[in-house]
């Protein structure tokens, strides 16, 4: 059911996949929040590339803008705001025993996910092979997301906006601190 992919496609897919994996591993082993954040950005970028390769151009762009751009920048802001990355803060990770246990748990989780991922896919929901292609031709990259978003998932979309509003309000209230709140 999958189309035949050209070698160059496969090569690039694996390339970005390996980069994402390597960056993620490096990220998770860093002790400094700043270093970790930069490695995470690297992962996000390679994932964005993978999205584009998987015919999700809009999502790929959003990945760069929202994750790599906005969210990670906020993280870095906070890190700098709290003046972390100080040598005293670097004694972060847990002991070896904990790490070993975490690794075992991770392996277990991974194998379980792999087993579950072998579940047969529900065939009756599969769309025609050129469905996304046609949508892309008809509505272009943004429109093929926008149409279901504003038609089928309109309510969820509106609720998300409320969620964002609440999050902003909450962040502001929390960020102002107790002294400000008491005023």
């Amino acid at each position: 059911m999958e189309p035949h992919y050209s070698l160059i496609y496969v090569f690039h897919f694996y390339l970005f996949g390996v980069i994402a994996l390597a960056s993620a591993l490096t990220f998770v082993t860093r002790k400094s929040p700043v270093t970790a954040a930069l490695w995470l950005v690297n992962t996000m970028f390679s994932l964005a590339a993978l999205y584009v390769m998987l015919d999700a151009q809009f999502v790929g762009v959003m990945q760069v803008l929202v994750y790599a751009g906005a969210i990670m920048v906020v993280f870095l802001f906070v890190v700098m705001l709290l003046n972390l990355g100080h040598p005293s803060e670097l004694a972060d990770a847990r002991g070896t025993g904990w790490k070993l246990a975490a690794g075992l748990i991770g392996l277990g989780l991974l194998s379980e996910i792999m087993v579950i991922a072998r579940t047969k896919l529900p065939q009756q929901l599969i769309v025609p092979r050129d469905f996304n292609e046609q949508q892309f031709q008809k509505l272009n990259a943004v429109g093929m997301i926008a149409e279901p978003l504003f038609k089928d998932y309109l309510l969820a979309f509106e609720l998300t906006s409320v969620l964002l509003l609440v999050a902003i309000t909450g962040a502001v209230v929390l960020g102002r601190g107790r002294a400000a709140g008491a005023r």
Binding site: I105, G108, L109, E112, I113, I116
Partner: peptide, 10 residues
């Protein structure tokens, strides 16, 4: 907990 529950599924 997640591990155990997924294990049950597995």
């Amino acid at each position: 907990g997640v591990l155990v529950m997924l294990g049950a599924f597995t």
